[in-house]
Lab assay of single mutants.
Amino acid sequence: QKEELKEKAKEAVKRGNKDKARELLKRAGISEEEAKKIIKKIE
C-alpha cells in the first residue's frame, strides 16, 4: 500500500502536481518534512 502511494506520488510530481503528491505521501504515513524531501528528489 505504502509503495503504491509512493509510486502514485512520483507520477503526480512528474505531471507537475506537487500538492497531489504531498497528499498521497501523507496518506502513506509520511511526515510533511519527509514528503518535501521526497518530492525534491523526484523533481
Results as ranks from 00 to 15, higher is better:
22 R>K: 15
1 Q>I: 13
15 R>W: 03
30 I>F: 15
10 K>I: 14
33 E>Q: 08
26 K>H: 09
7 E>F: 06
21 A>T: 01
8 K>A: 13
8 K>E: 11
8 K>L: 14
25 L>W: 00
25 L>M: 02
8 K>V: 05
43 E>S: 08
21 A>P: 00
26 K>R: 11
43 E>D: 05
11 E>H: 06
28 A>R: 00
28 A>P: 00
16 G>R: 03
11 E>D: 08
26 K>A: 15
29 G>S: 02
33 E>R: 10
13 V>F: 05
43 E>H: 05
26 K>V: 14
17 N>V: 03
2 K>T: 12
10 K>T: 09
14 K>G: 06
27 R>T: 14
20 K>E: 15
35 A>G: 03
27 R>G: 13
40 K>C: 10
20 K>H: 11
41 K>S: 12
12 A>R: 01
27 R>C: 15
12 A>I: 04
24 L>Y: 06
1 Q>N: 13
18 K>S: 09
16 G>A: 03
27 R>S: 14
3 E>I: 07
2 K>M: 14
42 I>R: 01
41 K>D: 14
8 K>T: 05
20 K>Q: 12
12 A>C: 10
29 G>C: 07
7 E>R: 12
4 E>K: 10
30 I>P: 00
8 K>G: 05
23 E>R: 04
36 K>G: 10
43 E>L: 12
27 R>P: 11
30 I>T: 02
13 V>E: 02
2 K>G: 09
42 I>D: 01
6 K>Q: 11
40 K>I: 12
21 A>R: 00
38 I>Q: 03
30 I>S: 01
11 E>M: 06
14 K>Q: 11
1 Q>A: 13
7 E>C: 13
42 I>G: 03
21 A>H: 01
38 I>P: 00
31 S>C: 04
2 K>V: 14
5 L>D: 03
32 E>N: 08
10 K>R: 14
33 E>C: 08
16 G>Y: 01
30 I>Q: 02
21 A>I: 05
12 A>D: 03
34 E>Q: 07
28 A>S: 04
37 K>P: 00
19 D>G: 07
17 N>T: 03
2 K>C: 14
10 K>Q: 07
33 E>D: 09
34 E>S: 03
25 L>N: 06
11 E>T: 06
18 K>H: 12
13 V>I: 12
31 S>T: 09
16 G>I: 03
39 I>M: 07
34 E>W: 03
24 L>I: 09
19 D>H: 07
18 K>T: 13
17 N>R: 07
22 R>M: 15
6 K>P: 03
13 V>A: 08
25 L>Y: 02
32 E>R: 06
5 L>A: 10
25 L>I: 04
21 A>E: 02
23 E>V: 02
23 E>A: 03
17 N>L: 12
34 E>G: 04
39 I>T: 01
20 K>R: 09
32 E>L: 08
5 L>K: 02
16 G>W: 00
16 G>Q: 04
38 I>T: 02
39 I>R: 00
16 G>M: 04
7 E>A: 11
13 V>M: 10
41 K>E: 15
40 K>N: 12
6 K>M: 15
31 S>H: 05
3 E>R: 09
24 L>G: 04
20 K>G: 08
1 Q>V: 11
7 E>D: 08
6 K>V: 15
42 I>V: 09
29 G>K: 00
35 A>R: 02
6 K>H: 11
41 K>V: 09
30 I>N: 02
2 K>H: 11
28 A>I: 05
19 D>S: 09
32 E>V: 06
23 E>L: 02
3 E>S: 08
19 D>T: 09
38 I>R: 00
14 K>H: 09
8 K>W: 07
26 K>M: 13
4 E>V: 10
34 E>R: 05
6 K>G: 06
32 E>A: 10
7 E>P: 02
17 N>W: 10
35 A>V: 10
22 R>W: 12
11 E>Q: 11
26 K>Q: 15
10 K>Y: 10
29 G>I: 00
36 K>Q: 13
16 G>H: 05
31 S>Q: 05
36 K>W: 09
20 K>I: 12
11 E>F: 00
38 I>K: 01
12 A>M: 12
14 K>I: 12
30 I>E: 05
23 E>M: 03
36 K>N: 15
30 I>G: 00
13 V>N: 02
1 Q>G: 11
11 E>P: 01
9 A>D: 02
15 R>D: 12
21 A>W: 07
28 A>C: 13
37 K>N: 11
17 N>M: 11
34 E>P: 00
42 I>E: 04
5 L>F: 08
24 L>S: 06
10 K>M: 11
26 K>E: 15
14 K>V: 09
38 I>G: 00
32 E>Y: 07
43 E>R: 05
3 E>C: 09
4 E>R: 12
42 I>S: 04
13 V>L: 11
17 N>F: 11
14 K>E: 08
38 I>V: 05
15 R>A: 15
38 I>C: 04
22 R>E: 15
28 A>G: 04
13 V>Q: 02
4 E>F: 11
18 K>E: 08
32 E>P: 07
5 L>C: 06
18 K>N: 11
10 K>E: 10
26 K>L: 14
3 E>V: 06
2 K>F: 15
41 K>M: 14
17 N>D: 15
1 Q>M: 13
7 E>V: 09
17 N>E: 15
17 N>S: 05
4 E>H: 10
12 A>G: 01
27 R>A: 15
37 K>S: 10
31 S>Y: 03
6 K>L: 15
24 L>A: 04
22 R>P: 03
37 K>V: 10
42 I>A: 10
22 R>S: 10
43 E>I: 11
13 V>G: 03
40 K>F: 09
3 E>G: 07
5 L>I: 06
4 E>G: 08
38 I>E: 03
11 E>V: 07
22 R>V: 14
42 I>Y: 12
15 R>F: 05
2 K>E: 12
5 L>P: 02
17 N>K: 08
24 L>F: 06
27 R>V: 11
16 G>S: 02
30 I>C: 13
11 E>W: 00
6 K>N: 06
36 K>F: 07
43 E>V: 08
29 G>T: 00
33 E>K: 09
3 E>L: 09
15 R>M: 13
6 K>A: 09
13 V>P: 01
